[in-house]
Write a protein that binds this DNA or RNA. Structure first.
Lengths: 120, 120
DNA sequence: GACGTATTCAACCCCTTGGTTGAATAACTC
DNA sequence: GAGTTATTCAACCAAGGGGTTGAATACGTC
């Protein structure tokens, strides 16, 4: 699983702890230890989470001495937004089309029984 | 895991097969059997995928006799877009701020060594 | 009611994942 | 080089996910 980047990004953000880390990073860059402090999980666990986020391209990491500060990366959010926006629009269009069809049906044949999910 | 809706939605879309199903549903409503045809997995597997998508609020289902046609739901895409857009903007802003800081540093002290990830 | 079709439920398998603890690596400090 | 701190690697464990097959349910048709 998680074959392409989109899969990795969605999977990465499916975890509440990781989304929480993203929220924290939106405030400002932070190291692994700083990020681990609020959560009552081990530093190693947070390190794993960061690896997942990094592999997904959600965060990047720098080297500052022995620290590895993390920062959000914007590009991957664009990728997701594009994917989502595409289907959001189509879903909305389909709703509108379905409504229009049903209205037409009702107007043309008021006694015609409505059947859902047939608007292909 | 998958405690709230956002987690469920992200987890649901993390699977390529399920994203493929979403793509298919964007073309038009379809039943479980119709959806299962293209993939070389069992109908039961697709049924499971649809349950995941339904629990996440990505698809809805109607009743047409013995068929259960599926259709995309738009609302949940809005939810995701809002969440993503929030961090996309902040990530971009941070980049710009970092760039500005680095430029300032270079302008003020040209011999100052650049250190990444310190813009808190 | 009996049959066929569409769909789901249940049990199982294997692999991944999120967590742990303990050891290893890397860099700074003395 | 020894010690300290930050981070990661390795091994392990429990739980969940995606797949299977076989049985059960629900509806339409004869």
């Amino acid at each position: 699983m998680t074959d392409d980047q989109l899969s990795r990004v969605f999977a990465a953000l499916a975890d509440p702890t990781r989304r929480s880390i993203v929220t924290r990073l939106a405030v400002g860059d932070a190291t692994v230890n700083e990020l681990a402090a609020p959560y009552d999980v081990s530093v190693q666990a947070v390190s794993k989470h960061l690896k997942v986020l990094e592999d997904a391209g959600v965060v990047g990491r720098s080297r500052d001495g022995q620290r590895r500060p993390c920062h959000l990366k914007a590009e991957v959010f664009d990728l997701m937004t594009k994917w989502i926006e595409r289907y959001r629009q189509q879903a909305e269009e389909r709703y509108q089309r379905l409504d229009a069809v049903l209205e037409q049906m009702n107007a043309a044949e008021p006694d015609h029984q409505r059947r859902e999910g047939q608007a292909s």
